[in-house]
Simulated scan of single mutants.
Amino acid sequence: MDGYKHYVRTNAAGLVIHGFSSAFETPEQTDACIDENGGRHFMIELRNERGQFRYRYENGTLVERGQSDLDAEWNARPPAPPTKEELREKRAADLEKALANLYTKGVV
């Protein structure tokens, strides 16, 4: 093609977290070259529609992760933090409950 090298960078789990061309970036020692004669731009989409890393680098090869692996990772993620609206609603419900307790005790 254009004579540029394409590299990938992995995390500790072996997931490909970054891909680039030698046209724009200098590789680090741990980066793996996956194409010796690629185009100027690295064109592989590394994330899926849920933002998960799609590939693993194993034994010198880019391997696409299976759907069951991606689903297991997705299901294990921590829950999203509550929104401001949800926090407001929780506080209002807590206040109503506390006020109801005061009424039943005859304080108010």
Results as ranks from 00 to 15, higher is better:
19 G>H: 01
48 N>A: 03
70 L>V: 12
87 L>M: 15
99 L>F: 08
21 S>T: 11
88 R>I: 14
49 E>N: 06
67 Q>K: 09
93 A>C: 01
28 E>H: 10
96 E>M: 09
65 R>W: 00
66 G>E: 08
10 T>A: 04
42 F>S: 03
63 V>M: 01
80 A>C: 01
103 Y>P: 00
27 P>S: 09
52 Q>D: 10
53 F>C: 08
58 E>H: 13
47 R>Q: 14
52 Q>R: 06
62 L>M: 11
20 F>K: 03
64 E>C: 03
82 P>H: 09
16 V>Q: 02
47 R>G: 00
33 C>D: 05
25 E>N: 09
48 N>V: 03
64 E>H: 00
63 V>N: 01
18 H>A: 10
102 L>G: 00
15 L>N: 15
64 E>Y: 00
15 L>V: 10
44 I>D: 03
15 L>C: 10
25 E>H: 12
40 R>C: 07
76 A>N: 14
44 I>M: 11
24 F>R: 13
17 I>C: 04
66 G>D: 07
86 E>P: 00
67 Q>T: 13
30 T>G: 06
85 E>V: 10
45 E>Q: 13
91 R>E: 13
40 R>Q: 14
43 M>F: 04
83 T>M: 04
81 P>E: 11
16 V>T: 07
95 L>Q: 09
50 R>Q: 13
10 T>L: 02
96 E>F: 07
74 W>N: 12
20 F>W: 07
25 E>D: 10
86 E>G: 05
85 E>D: 08
94 D>F: 10
58 E>P: 05
75 N>Q: 15
